[in-house]
């Protein structure tokens, strides 16, 4: 793209097309808190697993319906951050904050996927190949 092209294009306009959705402001749900305020960014495929304490009714009166729904969804089967975002129809950043709250409350823990810059080990790769072939 030439400089002339760039200056012709209004910067705000270029995000609105087929691949980019509408403007949203869902961080009200996290009372303005963002994932930067909590520890590290939770990986999209990190699984949220309920702790036994999540069964204890009335533990935390400050939880929102979204917090409760996350715990309930994960009680059936641990769910990834990405699945929760899709299921709750919330941006990933919002889900990260809500899950961070639940981790702080020790109602859930989060699995650690393969660390960045490391490949899964060879035996797992072989199991993936076998698993795919058997589908």
């Amino acid at each position: 793209m030439t400089e002339a092209d760039q200056s012709r294009e209004a910067p705000a306009a270029r995000w609105f097309d087929d691949e980019a959705g509408p403007v949203v402001r869902p961080y009200a749900m996290t009372r303005g808190r963002t994932s930067a305020a909590t520890r590290h960014r939770l990986d999209l495929i990190a699984l949220v697993v309920p702790e036994p304490a999540a069964d204890d009714p009335g533990r935390d009166q400050t939880l929102s319906p979204e917090h409760v729904e996350i715990v309930e969804r994960c009680s059936e089967q641990p769910q990834s951050i990405a699945e929760l975002a899709a299921g709750l129809d919330l941006p990933v950043g919002v889900v990260r904050v809500l899950v961070g709250d639940l981790v702080d409350d020790e109602l859930v823990h989060v699995t650690r996927p393969v660390p960045p810059a490391e490949l899964p080990d060879v035996s797992i790769l072989r199991e993936v190949i076998n698993g795919l072939r058997a589908l």
């Binding site: 999209l44 495929i45 699984l47 009714p57 533990r59 089967q77 699995t111 899964p120 797992i124 993936v128």
Partner: peptide, 22 residues
């Protein structure tokens, strides 16, 4: 706030799968 899982005290701890992505 209750999570409404009265029968859950007997629940097995869920399996924690390894997750991978392509």
């Amino acid at each position: 706030m209750a999570f409404g899982r009265s029968s859950s005290s007997r629940r097995q701890p869920p399996v924690e799968p390894v997750t991978l992505k392509i």
